[in-house]
Design a binder for these strands. Structure first.
Length: 482
RNA sequence: UCCUCGGUAGCUCAGCUGGUUAGAGCACCUGACUGUUAAUCAGGGGGUCGCUGGUUCAAGCCCAGCCCGGGGAGCCA
């Protein structure tokens, strides 16, 4: 018999007919009620067995985590917790799940709340929980919506390389890619490792950004975006950093910083709106989950809005757009600065903002997403377009409540002489990036783009608080299990 | 990398000023009950107190080093 997925059965169109479901047991109550989940939805299907007619040995094997194939009649439920249920006629155990601690390997998930830290240690099984089922269904929906957003606007998806030779992007420490024998590498006359003998005949690394390659494509195809994994070998241990993460990097020819901000704001709002429309059940669960978590917090640490309210708020309200210079003025006059509550007092114009300053602007002063623009050139990358004041660049960072920087972007420096000067100032060798400079030599054009951290977006959409819980298999310093 | 908190049963945690045989809830096992909603009731089993060393008559508790995890910071997306 053909299997029907639980999300289809719960729509109640086939009540009264014989159906087959396959899934994993969440709970088995009263020797009678199986709560079955098949991943198609966060909701479980209640399957009712007549224990008087069932083989007792078979009943004992219905344990949390066991995989079952059940055939029976879909009926209106007599109980109050659900609209429909399946009256079991035939039950087959596809896979047992040991529950008896004395018998060794036991299924570690119990019908109760587990800590996220514990579930991270069993990342291969955490898909089976409500929370991670919801998170990864939403992750899929956001992936799809991301492609749809750009496709619908005439963008082309570009697959930029994962292995790169350039060592000059300055976006962070890189992972080396090599096939040389680490114990006995070929050496040059100077005694250094001879990478001419390596697989690619030179040093190579995992990409830290597809931006420079995306710019090449944008200056021919017009509007492009990348969506792929990126790698940073930074020893950063925070809830917002991964060594392997996914990034979306649009790049648009003939666009300036304002176009860039408009696109990024539309991009974020589209995705949040998509989640509200298409992931309602999973979001309702995560909303309740977050509310339950909040109960354990002190009053002053609780958020003013629920997850669903925050999402709705972002969709409905324009992001605040201010320059770096204006932000410094606000921060200098701010209460915590005057009362010396900041760990890092505002040092005046020119220094980078600390996390606590960004949080003040977003969470206390404006209480909405903020786009900061026109940063001092000395604290930003070489490729950002210099403003006429000679001091600031056409950069923009989008700051989100609870998350911090979710987007970083800029109008790119399209003028060859300015770009060369900036590279010299920052000691970036031209020959490393000759191909990048070629775009400015041959038919250069104004253009702009940004990078959007996918996991940070997912933090916001799901209400989770650690990026390790929105990617299936997190890679962080000292941790690459599974 | 720095600061800080933590590591006790399969899970979540308690364990006082160092002092007898290390506790609870959930999970598990046995039994009862059977329209339950993380079912309920009774009974039972279950411990390398992160690791190594030290102090002490005595260490889960104190000291040192190390490992691992959380939170914060830096760096950034």
């Amino acid at each position: 018999m053909v299997r029907t997925e639980i999300n289809t059965l719960l729509q109640r169109v086939s009540v009264g007919t014989r159906v087959n479901v396959k899934g994993w047991v969440r709970t088995f109550r009263s020797n009678r009620f199986i709560s079955l989940n098949d991943g198609s939805t966060i909701h479980n299907l209640q399957c009712v067995v007549d224990f008087e007619k069932m083989d007792e040995e078979l009943l004992k094997r219905i344990t949390t985590g066991a995989c079952l194939s059940i055939t029976g009649i879909l009926a209106e439920s007599l109980g109050k917790g659900q609209k429909v249920e399946v009256l079991v006629e035939n039950l087959e155990i596809l896979g047992d799940s040991e529950a008896d601690v004395s018998k060794g390997d036991v299924y570690p998930l119990q019908p109760k709340a587990h800590s996220l830290e514990f579930l991270r240690e069993i990342a291969h099984l955490r898909f089976r929980t409500n929370t991670f089922g919801a998170v990864f269904r939403i992750r899929h929906a956001m992936t799809y919506a991301m492609h749809k957003f750009f496709h619908d606007r005439g963008f082309f998806n570009i697959h930029t390389p994962i292995i790169t030779a350039s060592d000059a992007e300055g976006a962070g420490e890189m992972f080396r890619v090599t096939t040389l024998d680490p114990k006995n590498p070929p050496l040059t006359e100077n005694g250094e490792v001879d990478f001419r003998e390596d697989f690619f005949g030179r040093q190579t690394n995992l990409t830290v950004s597809g931006q420079l390659e995306a710019e090449l494509a944008a200056l021919a195809l017009g509007k492009v975006y990348t969506f792929g994994p990126t790698f940073r070998a930074e020893n950063s241990n925070t809830a917002r950093h991964l060594a392997e993460f996914w990034m979306i990097e649009p790049e648009v020819a003939f666009a300036d910083l304002n176009d860039n901000m408009d696109l990024a704001e539309a991009n974020l709002k589209y995705l949040v709106q998509y989640a509200l429309e298409h992931c309602a059940d999973d979001l309702a669960f995560l909303n309740q989950r977050a509310l339950d978590e909040e109960k354990n917090k002190k009053k002053e640490e609780r958020s003013e809005m629920s997850l669903l309210e925050r999402l709705q708020f972002v969709v409905e309200n324009p992001f605040e757009r201010i320059t770096y210079t204006e932000a410094i003025e606000i921060l200098e006059k701010s209460k915590p600065n005057k009362e010396k509550k900041f760990q890092y007092p505002i040092q005046g114009w020119g220094t980078d903002l600390q996390s606590e300053h960004e949080r003040y602007l977003v969470e206390k002063h404006f209480k909405k997403p903020v786009i900061l623009t026109d940063y001092p050139k000395d604290i930003k990358a070489f490729y950002m377009r210099l403003n006429d004041d000679g001091k600031t660049v056409r950069a923009m960072d989008i700051l989100f409540p609870g998350i911090g920087e979710i987007v970083g972007g800029s109008q790119r420096e399209e003028r060859l002489d300015y770009l060369r000067k900036r590279m010299q100032e920052m000691h970036i060798p031209e020959q490393e990036l000759y191909w990048y400079l070629d775009t400015r030599k041959f038919g250069t054009a104004p253009h702009a783009g940004y990078g959007l951290g996918f996991e940070r977006l997912l933090l916001f959409v799901t209400g989770m608080t650690n990026v390790r819980d929105v990617i299936p298999f997190p890679r962080t310093p000292k941790s690459a299990d599974f």
